[in-house]
C-alpha cells in the first residue's frame, strides 16, 4: 500500500520534472511570471498615481479621462483587455513580447491602483487640509507634508494586496503566447498526459510567492500602525 503511493509520487515527479529537464519549463515560467508582475506593477503604480491625481483635481477634462479609464478597465474582463491591447494596439510594434504584455497588465492594474490611491487620500480627515491651509501652506505643500504622508499608510498595505492580485492575473498571459508559469503547466501536461501534477506544482509555486507577499503585507501593516 505505502509502496504503491510512493511509486505513484516518484513517477509523477520523474515524468513531470526530471525527464527531458522539464523542471526548466517551470523555472522559466516562474521567471516570466515574476518579470511580468514586477514590470506591470511599476507601470500600474505610475499610471495609478497620474490617474488618481487627475481624479482629485478640479480639472473637468482630467476627471473625465481618469473616470473613463477606470470604468472601462474595471468593467471588462482582463483577458479581453489583454488580447485587445496586445494585438490591436501594441502587437504591431517590435517591442519584446513580455514588455508589451507588461504594459497591458500595467494598464489593467493601474485602474485598481488609481482607486486605491484615491481612496487612501480621501480617507485622510479633511480637517488636516484645512489646518495646513490655515497656516499658510499652499495646496501643494499641504499635500506633500500633511496629506500624502498619512495617505501612504492607508495605501501601502492595499498596494501589496493589489500586487498579489496582479501576480495571479498574469496567469492569463498564455492567451498571447507568453510562456509564463501557468503555461508551463499546460505544456508539461501536454507531454505527460498527467492531468493533475503539473497544475498542483504550478499552484504550489503561486501559493509560495503570494504567502511571502501576504506575510510582508502583515508586517508592513503592523509597522505602519505602530508609527501612529
Amino acid at each position: 500500500m505505502l509502496e504503491g503511493i510512493f511509486k505513484v509520487l516518484s513517477d509523477a515527479i520523474f515524468y513531470n520534472l526530471i525527464r527531458e529537464d522539464r523542471y526548466l519549463l517551470f523555472v522559466n515560467g516562474f521567471k516570466v511570471s515574476i518579470q511580468l508582475t514586477v514590470f506591470a506593477a511599476l507601470i500600474g503604480v505610475a499610471i495609478g498615481l497620474l490617474m488618481a491625481i487627475s481624479k482629485l483635481t478640479n480639472n473637468r477634462i482630467l476627471n473625465r479621462i481618469a473616470t473613463a479609464y477606470t470604468d472601462v478597465i474595471r468593467g471588462t474582463p482582463s483577458v479581453v483587455q489583454l488580447i485587445v491591447i496586445y494585438y490591436a494596439i501594441l502587437g504591431s510594434s517590435h517591442l519584446p513580447k513580455i514588455l508589451v504584455a507588461s504594459i497591458a497588465f500595467g494598464i489593467n492594474s493601474g485602474a485598481y491602483v488609481t482607486e486605491l490611491i484615491r481612496a487612501g487620500i480621501l480617507a485622510v480627515d479633511k480637517g488636516q487640509m484645512e489646518a495646513a491651509r490655515s497656516l499658510g501652506l499652499s495646496y501643494y505643500q499641504s499635500m506633500r507634508y500633511v496629506i500624502v504622508p498619512q495617505a501612504i499608510k492607508n495605501i501601502l498595505p492595499a498596494l501589496v494586496s493589489e500586487f498579489i492580485v496582479l501576480l495571479k492575473e498574469t496567469a492569463i498571459a498564455g492567451y498571447i503566447a507568453l510562456d509564463d508559469l501557468t503555461r508551463a503547466g499546460t505544456i508539461v501536461r501536454g507531454r505527460t498526459f498527467d492531468p493533475y501534477t503539473p497544475f498542483i506544482l504550478v499552484a504550489l509555486i503561486y501559493l509560495y510567492i503570494t504567502s511571502i507577499l501576504t506575510a510582508f503585507m502583515g508586517r508592513l501593516e503592523r509597522r505602519l500602525r505602530q508609527s501612529d
Binding site: D125, A131, A132, L135, S138, Y145, V146, Q150, D228
Partner: peptide
C-alpha cells in the same frame, strides 16, 4: 497664503498632524 499667515486658526477638533511630534507640528509652517 499671505493672508492666512496673518490669521491663525484653532479648530474644535484640534486637527494636529498625527504623523508629526508636537514640535514638528509647530515648526512646519
Amino acid at each position: 497664503n499671505k493672508l492666512r499667515q496673518k490669521v491663525g486658526m484653532v479648530f474644535q477638533q484640534f486637527n494636529l498632524f498625527p504623523h508629526m511630534t508636537a514640535t514638528e507640528n509647530i515648526m512646519l509652517a
